[in-house]
Nucleic acid binder design. Structure first.
Lengths: 144, 144
DNA sequence: TTTTGTTGTAACCACTTAAGTTACATCTAT
DNA sequence: ATAGATGTAACTTAAGTGGTTACAACAAAA
């Protein structure tokens, strides 16, 4: 199944905070207007990013800011922080009770698990290659 | 969210057909006993694998067999055939209406899409590296 | 030709997750 | 105090997954 849009929403949110944060107060309503989702969705995203130590949100007065160097935040970090990754850390859903009385059922995990882990590692490795600093640089280039 | 167990069920199914097919008729009930799921789940898997040209199923009399060289069937092929992959081919769910009036909303796709595609390509690339022949070899080693 | 076993398929159900929405208590700064 | 914002609960809708029952169609064997 598809990876939740919580991930791309979280990336979008961080970019908005960075681009507009220096010139104005960035509220969940403001971010929601750029992402075009309900403000509550943004607040939930901010709660996750805050828990991951990436942003700070001023309760009451309002406004979010990034509190970690952009080059220290990878897409993978955001992927995990946004709860788009699996809780148990495994992308594949394995049928859980293969029959141990069958030669195949007894060995299917031993035969398959390594390859599945390889695929997941390759996927996550790509996300780890890209930092928010890269995205900002690219974005600024496009804005000019 | 997790990748459907339809994928690992399909792999398991193919291995059972190969290992036991030479000595007996392999029915959906037989496969279901090894995978330990409802026989209808196996029949659905066989329908998908049949549509992908990997297996042949005898209606009426029963029994499935593999009709494609094992080294020509990759995990990726099974992943796609089993309907565990996305219909539109994209792993990521992108929020669909970023605001074009916002510098970030207008450019978020341009900035992110390439990286998301890279991650997906790396993931699928790993699955393409492994063939059913590899799994069978490994499995036979473990059975001995 | 009847019987038997199997497949193909429809029709459900239960469960989970995603995402949107409303509502409101709480908080902070003015 | 007031105004604006956040944190959070509650509810809804929709979709997807996986399990299950049921049965018509079919093919081979008795």
């Amino acid at each position: 199944m598809k990876i939740s849009s919580r991930f791309t929403v979280a990336v979008h949110t961080l970019l908005v905070i960075h681009i507009y944060g220096s010139s104005q107060k960035v509220t969940s309503d403001f971010i929601a207007a750029s992402v075009r989702v309900n403000p509550v969705v943004i607040r939930r995203a901010l709660l996750s990013l805050k828990a991951a130590g990436m942003v700070e949100v001023k309760a009451g007065s309002g406004g979010a800011s990034i509190v970690k160097p952009l080059e220290d935040i990878t897409l993978y970090d955001i992927y995990v922080a946004s709860d788009a990754a699996e809780q148990d850390g495994k992308m594949f859903h394995f049928h859980q009770n293969p029959n141990p009385a069958c030669a195949v059922g007894r060995n299917i995990h031993g035969v398959l698990d390594g390859h599945l882990a390889d695929a997941q590692r390759a996927f996550e490795g790509e996300l780890k290659k890209v930092t928010l600093a890269d995205l900002v640089k690219d974005l600024n280039g496009k804005i000019q």
